[in-house]
């Protein structure tokens, strides 16, 4: 089966720093994979390259067999690769409802419509409301995003991504800084994704990682160290060494 995502020696340096170094990596459709690594390992940079936010210095990316290395950001999204951001990237003046609706309009090719009032798109509005309800955002869906609580905004990050109907979802520390209760909501929403959506989860909380992931990749200093099932990754001495001092289960947030 063609992997949903395959990178070939993907690299990016900043000045002398090799933030991502010859990463060759693939994901099967429907995968539940985690990407872990110490701070500054290059995880976010990797996602940025995949999604076209920054260009690779070298290497190529295939999405479902198609070379997308040179495609623009929105074209990658149209082909099913959607991400969330480690640091919230939301629309502060839009309400959650509007934010999700916007993603739906873009997905359905209705965004360039100048004439039909947005409220007439009832199916889209209902879908948006359903997505928001799934992430427990129903009660704040009509407030400006800037005014809702941080944990809720983290959830909105995911809601907006889900609205794009991904085939491959890249989640960059979705639960970072979120209080425990809401953390469970977020993980539940991720676990409830349809099985044909491949998920790559970047996360520092090893509890979450081991509960969620069927496979784990470890990135250290820009280089892919191992990629294997959780038990073997946990047992790997190189991984333990990379996390030097930090125990693999549970880094204080």
């Amino acid at each position: 089966m063609t992997p949903i995502l395959a990178t070939d020696r993907l690299s990016r340096s900043f000045g002398g720093l090799r933030a991502v170094n010859e990463v060759t990596f693939s994901l099967a459709p429907g995968a539940r994979q985690a990407l872990i690594g110490p701070n500054g390992a290059g995880k976010t940079t990797f996602v940025n390259i995949l999604t076209g936010v920054i260009a690779p210095s070298f290497g190529s990316i295939r999405l479902a067999g198609e070379d997308i290395t040179r495609l623009s950001r929105h074209q990658r999204v149209r082909r099913g690769m959607v991400r969330t951001f480690q640091v919230n990237q939301l629309f502060p003046d839009l309400t959650p409802l509007e934010s999700v609706l916007l993603a739906i309009f873009e997905r359905d090719g209705k965004a360039a419509n100048l004439r039909r009032p947005a409220w007439r798109e009832e199916a889209a509005a209902e879908e948006a409301a359903a997505i928001l309800a799934r992430l427990k955002l129903a009660d704040v869906m009509d407030l400006p995003t800037a005014e809702i609580a941080y944990g809720k905004r983290r959830q909105l990050e995911i809601a907006v991504a889900l609205a794009c109907r991904p085939k491959l979802l890249l989640l960059d520390e979705p639960a970072a800084g979120v209080p425990d209760g809401e953390r469970q909501d977020i993980m539940a929403a991720i676990a409830a994704l349809p099985r044909d959506v491949a998920v790559l989860l970047i996360e520092h909380d090893m509890d979450l990682v081991f509960r969620f992931a069927e496979r784990i990749a470890v990135l250290v200093g820009g280089t892919l160290l191992v990629e294997d099932v959780p038990e073997r990754v946990a047992a790997d001495p190189r991984v333990r060494e990379a996390y030097l001092g930090e125990s693999l289960d549970g880094r204080a947030a």
């Binding site: 929105h74 999204v77 959607v82 951001f85 990237q89 939301l90 309009f105 100048l114 947005a118």
Partner: peptide, 30 residues
């Protein structure tokens, strides 16, 4: 009419966060 249509949402989205716009598949330049 334009600002109440989906395109109005698009415009406010671009002002709010162009990076996120491209991440929801919006051809921002167009």
């Amino acid at each position: 009419r334009i600002v109440n249509a989906p395109f109005g949402l698009v415009l406010r989205g671009i002002q709010g966060n162009a990076l996120r716009m491209s991440a929801v598949g919006a051809p921002v330049n167009r």
